[in-house]
Amino acid sequence: MKENEALCVVFSTFFRTGLKAKRTRVFILLGLVPVLLMLAVRVMEGAGTLEAGAAAEFFARVTLALYFQLLVPVLALFFGSSIVNEELDNKTLVYLTTVPVRRRTVLLGKFLAAFLLAALLVAAGFLLCFLSASLRRLGQAAAWGELGLFLGAALLALLCYMALFSAAGAFMKKSILIGLFFIFGWESVVQYFPGVTQKFTIVHWVKSLLPIPPGEGGFLIFQLQPSPPLQSILALLFAGALFLALSVFIFERKEYIFSDNA
């Protein structure tokens, strides 16, 4: 069997399975939180409880922060690390590693399925939030351009984080814990360091893509010394590809030992 056909088989099977998985349902609910918050602000703005423009401001200050600093990385952590970890927990890896298909094909097929699922979850929630926030600007091309930029940045962030957590999941069993430390420790703190140091976080490159003028974005751009957009896109793509190659490298060479061996 050609490897690209095998990739399609793995991708389609695990995408279908992923749609029915409990984890997906949990993240659908979690993804609804910012949408519901956004709708509440919109309703209050419409009723006059909040001043005009409150929804747009809420979107820029809270929703974007929720997505880029919490939802996207956490979603990437759970979907990315589960690519290998889930197979180890359920002891099902043996079925995918005793077929005449390269291990890299299995990993990439599963990665693509997980990425598409996570991307759909992020994009759907993000779209609903954006529509609620920009109801009055929907006729303007600039609004749709902004949406494209937000979605593009979110998908690049998702790709990069997921590839990183996929490598962590292929390398160690308790990758969720390490991933949480990374998201809420390293990423949350180092992004505020001055100079070059903040460039060692993924979130720095993601924020550099967001179309918020300096000084107007609240804590999202606090002390951000943005990099040029093209450089940020290339940095995210390069990091994503590097982490994915690392996942493949680990997965092809590592033996996975279950506790019942011996």
């Binding site: 793995v10 359920n90 019942d260």
Partner: peptide, 26 residues
């Protein structure tokens, strides 16, 4: 290879599982 431990893709149907392996076998 038939492993000893009781493992399977519990959410899949048996036919779907065997079909996945058949297709991966070429």
């Amino acid at each position: 290879f038939c492993p000893e431990h009781d493992s399977a893709y519990m959410e899949m149907k048996a036919g779907e599982f065997i079909m996945l392996l058949a297709r991966l076998h070429g």
